[in-house]
């Protein structure tokens, strides 16, 4: 059984149709890159998967491990293993990062009928994940993302992913706003989380990220549908020629 099956997905945002019959399958262990021009529906797909309010599915289905996600709240989807790394992670003043991480992890464990982590075990896991991502303990004492640079926010997203160990990770333009050093740290963090059970959707505008996170498959999105699929060489081809072939316009 596929990990994720998206079939004939139609979705709209504020009355505007964005996804128009999108089909996509992710197998366990697979890393799929999704590329496409601005407005092709990449971020909409990410938000629809996570269940963001205002993103309305009008037709089609999304199945994770064979079960539809459409009637589930965002927190229920998260507990079943969906993780969205935000393009623009939010700042939450007054909520300490450690409190946030712990609340999220224990809420997911509770929803799955697992016991809460002990404090030492939780701290150990956070410390390990933070060290790999070069996140200082001092940052974890601050409010969530408050005063973090763009790169720190992205690393904090990957830290959350490492702690929550999702089945399906959706990375929405994780490379945006990163310099090359930060990009390497983030990509290393993501690669460390590749596993035979976990699927990943890497949404990006540029081929550059895929030098560091090498995908098993590349899909091109245009006007809310997958219009071409191929291996990692497709990304290089797009980098050279642009998206004009797929949009019917010069890029």
């Amino acid at each position: 059984m596929s990990l994720l099956e998206i079939s004939n997905l139609h979705a709209r945002v504020e009355g505007k149709q964005i996804l128009n019959g999108l089909n996509l399958t992710i197998e366990p262990g697979q890393v799929a890159a999704i590329m496409g021009p601005n407005g092709s529906g990449k971020s909409t797909l990410a938000y629809v998967l996570a269940g963001r309010p205002g993103y309305e599915v009008t037709e089609g289905d999304i199945r994770l491990d064979g079960e539809s996600l459409l009637d589930l709240q965002p927190d229920e989807r998260a507990a079943r293993g969906v993780f969205l790394a935000f393009q623009y992670p939010m700042e939450i003043p007054g909520v300490a990062t450690m409190t946030f991480l712990r609340t999220a992890l224990n809420a997911q464990r509770k929803a799955r009928g697992e016991p809460e982590l002990t404090t030492p075990e939780f701290l150990k896991r956070v410390r390990e994940a933070a060290d790999h991502l070069e996140i200082k303990q001092e940052m974890l004492r601050r409010g969530v993302n408050v005063g973090f640079s763009g790169g720190e926010k992205k690393r904090n997203e990957i830290l959350q992913m490492a702690l929550l160990q999702p089945k399906l990770a959706v990375l929405d333009e994780t490379d945006s706003g990163l310099d090359i050093d930060a990009l390497k740290i983030v990509a290393d963090g993501v690669n460390r989380l590749r596993s035979p059970e976990r699927g990943m959707i890497v949404i990006t505008h540029y081929q550059r990220l895929l030098d560091y996170i090498v995908p098993d498959v590349v899909h091109v999105l245009s006007k809310g549908r997958v219009v071409k699929s191929g291996d990692k060489n497709l990304a290089l081809e797009l980098e050279a020629k642009g998206y004009a072939d797929y949009t019917g316009e010069a890029a």
Binding site: A50, A78, F86, I92, P93, G94, T103, A104
Partner: peptide, 27 residues
């Protein structure tokens, strides 16, 4: 948007609201 961010990490709505209310009065 903040509530969605918290929920997307698995925190149920009421608990997410509680975190934010606590942060609000905490200041």
């Amino acid at each position: 948007d903040l509530l969605f961010y918290l929920k997307a990490r698995g925190i149920p709505a009421k608990e997410a609201e509680a975190l934010m209310v606590k942060a609000f009065v905490g200041e």
